[in-house]
Design a protein around this nucleic acid. Structure first.
Lengths: 121, 121
DNA sequence: CCCATTACTTACAAATTTGTTTGTACCGCA
DNA sequence: TGCGGTACAAACAAATTTGTAAGTAATGGG
């Protein structure tokens, strides 16, 4: 995501909020437009870059790369490079990410329910 | 948050993604930096604007207003204005928002756990 | 009349996120 | 030699989100 300004109000705010609230911490890790979508896809096992790209509608290669990098840094996925040509790389959920599965399932159910209840707009 | 460009790639993407995935739909509703923090505070009953502002470190009045408006539009909170001077307004979770409570509790627990497991950064 | 209080609104500016386009390395194949 | 496939990276541009600073209305109290 490019670097952030170290001392922007945003950054200061964020670090402050994060350290004082586990929930916000979690949201920071898995929030944003793509992260959960990516994790979701990996729910049933490894996938390679191109598979993710094809399965996630609307994502660009750049975004996929960026998000994968972040997820890796946060310890939510592992990245395995196979020394072949053409290159092959695959991604897999870590244990800690697997613990999120029930959560995103519930959230998904809630989403479905909410979608029906507030269809106007 | 100000209007969005109707036909930006972002918007198109978002609506597409949202309609095809309940999870992303949910994330759209409660994602972002402040929404869950606000909902959290309301977990134990109504609060007025100033109470929210004081309890949520780092939020500005503008952000609080904007987020509250969105949450209201999405049917997650109700807004009650008391015809007094100085004004008094309070906010309360709706039923559908209450259904999120267990989810954010789990997420919070996960956050706490993750925080300890990946302290390096 | 002046001030304080509350819950905002508005205009503007800065920061952050996302997208577009082009390019890279490697090898095998025609 | 040129092309194709894979998994990216870099430069740049646009969109979106967040923050700052300054109002506003209504009214009771001094």
């Amino acid at each position: 995501m490019g670097k952030r300004k170290e001392n922007s109000t945003n950054s200061l705010n964020e670090s402050y909020i994060v350290e004082s609230c586990d929930l916000t911490y979690a949201i920071c890790k898995i929030g944003g437009r793509w992260k959960l979508l990516i994790l979701c896809r990996l729910e049933n096992g490894k996938l390679r870059f191109s598979e993710l790209r094809n399965q996630i509608t609307g994502i660009t290669e750049r975004m996929l790369t960026l998000q994968l990098r972040e997820l890796e840094k946060e310890g939510l996925i592992t990245r395995t490079v196979h020394a072949e040509v053409p290159p092959r790389v695959d991604y897999e959920l870590t244990d800690i990410a697997l613990e999120l599965v029930p959560i995103w399932k519930q959230l998904s159910q809630w989403g479905a329910k909410h979608k029906n209840r507030v269809p106007k707009q």
